[in-house]
Design a protein around this nucleic acid. Structure first.
Lengths: 215, 215
DNA sequence: GCTATCTGATAGCGCCACTATCTATGATGG
DNA sequence: CCATCATAGATAGTGGCGCTATCAGATAGC
């Protein structure tokens, strides 16, 4: 198919597709003549993936580029690859936690204790660890440090979710499918859970307020 | 305190503080003379809240402005206020789901069935519902529609989290504290859970890969 | 041949979260 | 009292990002 049809099928404007190709998010079409290129279902699929990561996952174009480059690198062993993928999918909270004040220190301790208690095999270099520390430090700074008491309940729920996530990815057989499943699952899974949490919150609070305010 | 000290205490540059005041995120300092204003702990607290919503929550300045305006509006009844707060804290997936193709229709059905099965009291106008629909539609479009099979497990975990969220907010007595707790809990809670999920995933997959690749 | 479409390249746009600079004023310390 | 510093308020500018517009030259398909 030509670029116009690709655009029509996916709803992505032609100049935007070209932009993605320039940025390395999408391989160029195969040239049949100096100014004619043809695109296949692989391109379409990749393009939809890019849009999902952008719109649902909120990833930046640069981050998507990194993740996809890792996916396409046939050399890298799978577990390393999953690492890069995961690393680029966590937003940078680096400077947010990097204040290194009392709250940051306490947050690090709390996270270390949690990991210890859970027996999790996660190194301190993990970005998610930093993100969690940043979140806890931030809570303390805004005077909601006690929200951290819910940490264990959150962790419990997170373990449940991670379990089914892993079951899902375990179904994949081929390498590319596996990594893609991880990427999609991680990114879209976040959005899914956040939405479900909101819905469950609304439901729970409507039950409470319905009693108190029966108007 | 003067603006310089506020800046030092929070690590936010003076021009940025002024910018926030202009944008309505922060009330102006009390003028003691035409070019001297004093700020108190209330300002400091609010400023920290703004930074938390920006850095951890990833909210836009405009969204934060809306949420804070709602918090400060002493007229509005609490439940309406919680509504506005929640509405502005969900990113706009509107046009992402708005393709109205087969996937979108199926996603809507799935979500409706889930709400039905869970007995949740959530209207279809709820933004979280739209976000979930968008996520599911997106999954289907990238060929990972079967990820939606995990929906029920996700919902279960979300209910657990929402339960403890509600318990936390129920402790608040004063109006402002309540709303703030909801805002902080929602926004930072998302980040917290996402980080925990990553960590749990890493742990779970390390257990699997440790067996397969005992290097 | 004619029109619609294409490639590849370059430049520009709109938004956003700041940041820089300026003037006029006042605070502060020796 | 005066030099120095900080401040308020206003306006303009910056850098990054995700596109979007425009163009020249070439080709497709009728």
């Amino acid at each position: 198919m030509r670029i116009g049809e690709l655009s029509r099928r996916t709803g992505v404007p032609v100049p935007t597709i070209k932009y993605y190709v320039r940025e390395g998010l999408l391989p160029a079409g195969e040239l049949s003549s100096p100014n004619q290129a043809s695109y296949d279902e692989g391109h379409e699929r990749r393009l939809r993936l890019v849009r999902a990561l952008l719109e649902v996952g909120g990833l930046s174009v640069a981050a998507i580029g990194d993740v996809l480059t890792a996916i396409d690198d046939k050399e890298q062993p799978v577990h390393k690859l999953l690492g890069t993928a995961a690393r680029r999918m966590v937003p940078e909270y680096g400077d947010a936690a990097g204040q290194d004040d009392a709250e940051a220190v306490l947050a690090r301790e709390k996270v270390a204790r949690l990991i210890e208690a859970r027996g999790w095999h996660v190194g301190p270099g993990n970005k998610a660890v930093g993100a969690l520390e940043a979140a806890l430090a931030s809570l303390a700074r805004v005077g909601h440090g006690s929200f951290a008491e819910l940490l264990d309940d959150y962790a419990e729920a997170a373990e449940q979710v991670a379990r089914v996530d892993l079951e899902y990815t375990a179904r994949r057989v081929d390498r590319e499918g596996l990594v893609e499943a991880v990427v999609v699952g991680t990114v879209v899974g976040d959005a899914m859970f956040a939405a479900l949490r909101r819905m469950a919150q609304v439901d729970a609070s409507s039950r409470i307020f319905a009693q108190e305010l029966p108007e």
